[in-house]
Design a protein around this nucleic acid. Sequence first.
RNA 1: GCCGGGGUGGUGAAAUGGCAGACACAGAGGACUUAAAAUCCUCUGGGGCGCAAGCCCCGUGCGGGUUCGAGUCCCGCCCCCGGCACCA
Length: 828
Amino acid sequence: MHIGTLELTTRSTQQKPMEERYEPNKIEPKWRDEWERTDLYLTREEPGYPKFYVLEMFPYPSGDGLSVGHLHNYVPCDVIGRYKRMAGFNVLHAMGWDAFGLPAENDALLKGLHPKETVPRYAANFKRQLKLSGCAYDWTREINSSSPEYYRWTQWFFLMLYKRGLAYRAMGSQWWCDLCRTILANEQVVNGCCWRHTENPVTKKDLEQWFFKITAYADRLIEDLEGIDWPEPIKLMQRNWIGRSEGAELAFPISDHPGKEVRFFTTRPDTVFGVSFMVLAPEHPLVAEITTAAQRAAVEEYVTDARRQTEIERLSTVKEKTGVFTGAYAHNRFSNMDIPIWIADYVLMGYGTGAIMAAPGEDDRDFAFAKKYGLEIPVVTAPADGSSAPSDRALTDRGIAINSGFLNGMKTDDAIRAVCKYAEEHEFGKATVTYRMRDWLISRQRYWGCPIPILYCKTDGIVPVPDDQLPVLLPDMKDYQPSGTGRSPLANVPEFVNAICPKCGGPAERETDTLDGFACSSWYFLRFASPHYNDGPFEKRAGDYWLPVDLYVGGAEHAVMHLLYARMWTKVMFDTGLISFKEPFPVLRNQGMIWAGDGQKMSKSKGNVVTPDAMVEKYGADALRLWELFMGPFEEATNWNEDGVFGTARYLQRVWGVVRRYVEAGCPTGTPSAETIKRAHKTVRTVTDQVERMRFNTALATLMDQLNYLAKLTPAELGRFTIESYVLMLAPMAPYVGEEFWRELGHNKSIHLEAWPKFDAELTRDETVTVVVQVNGKVRDRLQVPAGMSEQANTELALKSEAVIKNLDGKAPRKVIYVPDKLVNIVA
RNA sequence: GCCGGGGUGGUGAAAUGGCAGACACAGAGGACUUAAAAUCCUCUGGGGCGCAAGCCCCGUGCGGGUUCGAGUCCCGCCCCCGGCACCA
């Protein structure tokens, strides 16, 4: 069991005296080696023993190495891991590499190297930097998503989804980045540009692609947000991204096209009597069919124009709505009017049915469009408060139906239900739900990714690769440049492409696209439980013990990518009975971004990256860690300022002095004063609470404050508990000096295996308290009184105060506010 | 435009509706030193009164409000950061 007891051995007299000055570079390598030699951070399952799984989002190992910004994530997690271990938990804290994907491939291409060489090299550098920084990982659990032992199971999961009908192939117009030379998922398109090339507008390309049916989980992904402890903004981003809308899908027949109809989705079916025109997306399949000869030229020009526009242009237009009349009409089944059908690019093919009913009296966009093209603007909703409807804008609020036949007088919600019921009875529509989120497009036409384990056979069609033939190995290619044609470079490797159909034994071709890197990271948290297991993605016993993750920490930028995908996979696994939990990360925290001193993003090209290596060399890893913790609340963004590291190094220097004096005095049991004892216990109480709440900045401030007190005492006045509890609390934050102090204090066991100090609540109780005395809410005096003094006694005392008498200026107190042991406010 | 998160000294920041600025950084002055570094001590929101101990006024983006009492709660603005962006 990795849990220590307080050994009260005295320091051996043969030991060398403590160095006068704290020199981190002398002690850090020593303890690093010692911890490694003794496998200090090795973790095993301990059934029946409480576990704690702390996890940081595993990084893509870049050639630039880690910056002090990355450590703002890793150091706090390390403190939590070390703290939890001391507090009696069996802690899992491991690290791995999100190694597949475009960044790694692009980097290698740029440098004329191969990712299979660069990735391990970069990962090794990250690992060295993390060790240098004193982070406690069980490195025997290191994983790499680009190793066959790992991606074999990524492929296994793909097949699991495929067999459950959750992976499918579909043709369609997809986002394409011509710098990445691959198709992208919706989530990877940011402001109309590629998420990796934020200046490069994406275009559309028609290709057949693989998708994961994440939309099938839309409702559960929303519902289950209720029960998890995540930052509210992240939950909100997920809800917005999924974009659930309740409404109705209805259909209107097209005049002069018997049997043809326009299906559309609306969230306001109650306004249907006010529908004066309809709008189709320019890409809508009906457009070609219904456009009249007279309008054909104009419509074709508009459609071509819309197609030519890049997404960024379509977004950046100043929202001036444009459109063209098709010449065709639809029949509004409710108002019995024939209404014109237009096309306009403000209607998106990718949402709902790609067609809308326009109710310009109740919708801003429809209003603007109707105004511009002189279309009718019927008003069918009156404000709920009885005022009259505005004429210069749409009334988008809910209200009362007017000019609406059988809906007249109904409240919006009742009218919605009535229309849905009517449509259902007359079989032209029904109440329905639509989502903004699209299915997750996972095909990538790139080399450095997990091969999709699928075969195409002439007789059997799409055939999954049997489990016992996994992994489908990524072939070793010298020239893996993306072609840009929409085909993966793997298509150029005949030995890879040509295979045998496992069903009929005939010739088959392999899928040559690779998986989106986010597939690899959708299950890695499970792999850490049993990273070397060969009979499944994870060993059940280990998985049951460690999972789910107790604390997950990473950047908010993954709100709608990784965090959504991993949740979906977890739900699929739950449904198959593979695991027994529905959410992978019940507690999530986002660390704040560290900007460079100039307020910009740290990047090599800007030359403003500060490396942990440089800081460790100059100030030591412990001082660097302390500044990472002290610079502000860890969830908030701030600018890097190296002067702070100098400050925390100076603090450690002072702790060193106090401990050294104590050690040199022979570690006396001493005779600490009541005040010293009280302060020691209060410090434990406060620091414990703050570390639990991840308020590392104030935890450290408490320790600094206590040091200022301790520095004034003689060794005998300090006493053993005072000094040892202090060192124990410092150890998770500053593991190297913590260890050094502990050994100097006479202990043989590592401090990181010891127990977190406990405080005696009785000893933290104050006998006297300071009571603030206010007159009319302004502080006029302070009284030192015994704790628990009665209101009456306190008030009497306050009224005797000279300052109070002076400020009352002869007036009689009207009222007295009394807060026990805190405050007396005399209102006159 | 909509949805979040913020706005407190020269700087990073503290503060269950109850002493605003803890703890630090930077700065100033002093001690030690031949000197410097390091270290230690003192001061450090603004303004005013006082020889002094001390006292008074103002102050948490701006304007209102609730309250005995507001950095904290409510209403209306302004600014910064992040997300979404014609989602029918």
